[in-house]
Write a protein that binds this DNA or RNA. Structure first.
Lengths: 218, 218
DNA sequence: AAATATATTTAGACCAGACTAAAAAAATGA
DNA sequence: TCATTTTTTTAGTCTGGTCTAAATATATTT
């Protein structure tokens, strides 16, 4: 069995591996977990003893097969609970993260499978991220920044990088919300601003905005 | 904010106060929590500092108003989660306790109220115990041992003291289950055994059995 | 390649929460 | 009442997880 702290380390290392590459640095983990590098060294050594990751001094860590499984399972729990919170308890998709952070650590052999069934085996969470199945299998869904789309492309809004109050209000005014279809009408080369269409309305948005919105292309 | 351990102490002390009287002894707490008396002393002193209970050396502890509130709130969470597990995820009423023990510690301002609404504001949990409302108010429901009923009285089965495998099987054979109506047909003075009727069937049950079944009288 | 800067690890400490063993208070009983 | 038993507390230790400060490795600059 793994403690709450151990589970959080595994999950964080998993996420960092996705983004960066294979070896994850001590400092990267420390930053994500808002802790000190020395604490990370301690924990990483302990997790190496437990065979869930391999660790080479001064070089970094990678999850083992077993560590990967555990991390994916935590992510599965996190995302299913998020679906529950949004669909059943009517939270909005940007409120659920911290509650799901707690729920993902509930220990039970059967709970999460029953929850999954209750929710009707959803494939993605409220942020558009895929939900691993019981065996940890899932398709990587193309989630990219709106700024990466070319003229003419359409994407479904699935989330945002930062979710500051002001930014949310900005989006709200333009009825840009999760699940909204966004079409790139035109794109300016000199400042990377773009014109987009959402629900039949057209606006100009700056590079900064376009770099804060995630979309999926189908 | 209170830690998981602190919350468990408060809950336990609350339950012990109900059963016994006002002052709760160190040993009683230790036994319920399956820990050592010395550990209890430490924790109880800490909780006294935090104003949630009053503690007099060698005499025992009682919850303060504030401590009581916190305990009732944890119990509210526990019971609502149990309803969720039984009604939505189709667990049986004797499987849910350990999962609810974990879920009751999830921290969120709004979560439990939303869950309560989702469940349709249930009044009792799957064991027949009342669910406190948002203000911690609830009616004490008459839950008593079947052995305490007199000839002719009817009760609804709401739970059992011990829930050993063998005992459960014994009950199952006689179709004694949660929500079953039990009528005391006769009672023997010399050994406290009784004849009961359940679903139209009559059996004799021993004192031991009658002391393990909880019923509510309406 | 030497000097400096950055990243990482080690050593030693702390806190929460538990434990053991011993001391002290309270309850029991001859 | 005085001795014994039981309950409770104290003192000191341990583990998990964290921290700071100092030491060591690696990377970068000149």
């Amino acid at each position: 069995m793994f403690t709450l702290a151990e589970e959080n380390y595994l999950k964080t290392i998993y996420h960092l591996q996705q983004n960066v590459g294979v070896e994850v640095s001590t400092n990267a983990i420390a930053e994500k977990l808002e802790t000190k590098a020395s604490s990370v060294t301690d924990m990483v050594q302990k997790l190496a003893d437990k065979q869930v990751l391999s660790y080479v001094k001064y070089k970094g860590t990678t999850l083992t097969e077993k560590g990967n499984e555990i991390a994916v399972n935590i992510i599965r729990k996190h995302r299913l609970w998020e679906v529950f919170l949004v669909e059943k308890l009517h939270y909005s998709w940007d409120e659920v993260h911290e509650i799901a952070e707690q729920l993902e650590h509930i220990k039970s052999e059967s709970l999460i499978d029953r929850l999954e069934e209750f929710l009707g085996f959803p494939k993605v969470d409220p942020h558009g991220d895929p939900i691993p199945d019981q065996n940890g299998q899932f398709k990587k869904v193309e989630k990219q920044l709106l700024s990466q789309l070319a003229k003419g492309q359409k994407g479904i809004c699935v989330g945002m990088k930062e979710s500051e109050r002001n930014f949310l209000r900005y989006l709200d005014k333009r009825s840009i919300a999760i699940e909204a279809e966004i079409t790139v009408i035109s794109k300016e080369d000199f400042d990377d601003s773009m014109q987009i269409e959402v629900n039949g309305n057209r606006f100009f948005i700056s590079k900064k905005i376009a770099e804060n919105l995630y979309v999926k292309i189908f």
